[in-house]
Design a protein around this nucleic acid. Structure first.
Lengths: 212, 212
DNA sequence: CGGACTATTGAAGACGTTCAAGGTATGTGG
DNA sequence: CCACATACCTTGAACGTCTTCAATAGTCCG
């Protein structure tokens, strides 16, 4: 979408576990992720954590910032991240006219969030993990980062647990069960999906349109 | 916010269980809810249902429609609904300049959705139900529809179950447990919260800012 | 009054959690 | 290059929360 560094834009880098944004900040710029993964999350006082959004290459971070207000949740790098800094003075929606891609991005984020409400509210462990892996694969493919049936998958099982609302132990057992069924091959941060159709079925995503 | 019927606007009414919107429609107008409750939901092929948004008086239905695209989820009336029809031709963001209230509304909706991801991903049954009741009460109060410690609460236990990701049976037991602890009084569609502070604590909402 | 939906209660069972321990990678510094 | 530390993954056993199934009682409305 953005192929070169234009006026006011600059490249920034973040290392694993480094914050792209902290809580209650007034963001002055959005980030266009070029490489690496990041996530937004909420931490409860007793240590429970829920990841509420994932940012992959090609994503804006965070689209909702243009609506104004403070950042309500921190965003942290899951891998090393390279991004483009896009200055914006919220509420900056006026200046976004014609940036179809950006509004689509906001719309997509809301849509994904809705889909995750359904997943967390209705689905079994297997369906949740399957849903996550399908979503990741299809987003990576859309970003041109899938190679045949494979793509990078840098999430740890703890991070998968914090996304799916499960415990790390149960995520482990669920992944093994999926491996045993031949639904996925997952090792050394690399995911292969022999039959996407089968995995989508296991995710109760039949009938839903693919993200492609 | 809107006190009279202006150009192009018109009042519309919906009865309980009537659709405000169906799936895969191209919405040509937003609705500004004046009276009554409605909800957006997703239904799975095997009957599981997740309510993904609640629309109360003073809410726009649905803010994300201005971002364009088709409606991805149906919206149905929970009670009789009176609303104002606000024509808009998406993408209509350009014409929304200066409508601060509207953008705030979109921002609030995204914020609430994030909060519900946390609730569904991390919280116990008691915390989920408490969270829902606190949120409803504070939204009703904001709309000027709370009277002291009380407000209307037209949701059935089945609808509470579909919001919280629990079974109706367990919602029933949870509500009784909350009544036994003196956290709520709930009967004939009317909610009273003796000590909001205590209920917020039961909802693990301590430290979070009130919606007021 | 009758029918449909909603609320309540009990008992049994499943899915996921918790606790605990051991094993395997990964990276860093000496 | 090896030693060590840290983080991540894997496995087992016991437990708990929530579900499921089923039956009864209450409420609303034509």
């Amino acid at each position: 979408m953005l192929s070169q560094v234009a006026q006011g834009e600059s490249q920034v880098h973040f290392r694993v576990h480094q914050f792209l944004a902290r809580e209650n900040e007034a963001p002055d710029a959005m980030l266009y992720i070029q490489e690496g993964w990041a996530c937004r999350y909420r931490l409860l006082s007793d240590g429970r954590r829920q990841i509420t959004a994932l940012y992959l290459p090609g994503d804006y971070c965070d689209p909702q910032w243009v609506l104004g207000g403070l950042t309500s949740q921190p965003i942290v790098a899951i891998t090393n991240v390279r991004a483009l800094r896009l200055p914006c003075k919220p509420p900056a929606y006026a200046s976004m006219d014609g940036q179809q891609g950006f509004w689509l991005s906001l719309s997509d984020m809301i849509e994904r969030q809705s889909a995750w409400l359904v997943t967390l509210g209705c689905m079994t462990a297997m369906e949740r993990v399957a849903h996550l892996l399908v979503e990741l694969f299809e987003r990576m493919r859309k970003a041109g980062l899938a190679y045949g049936q494979q793509c990078a998958m840098p999430l740890t099982q703890i991070e998968i647990a914090d996304m799916t609302g499960l415990t790390p132990v149960h995520v482990n057992r669920t992944l093994q069960s999926m491996r045993a069924k031949g639904l996925i091959e997952l090792q050394s941060k690399w995911l292969r999906i022999p039959e996407l159709h089968a995995l989508r079925e296991a995710a109760a995503m039949t009938g839903q349109l693919s993200a492609i």
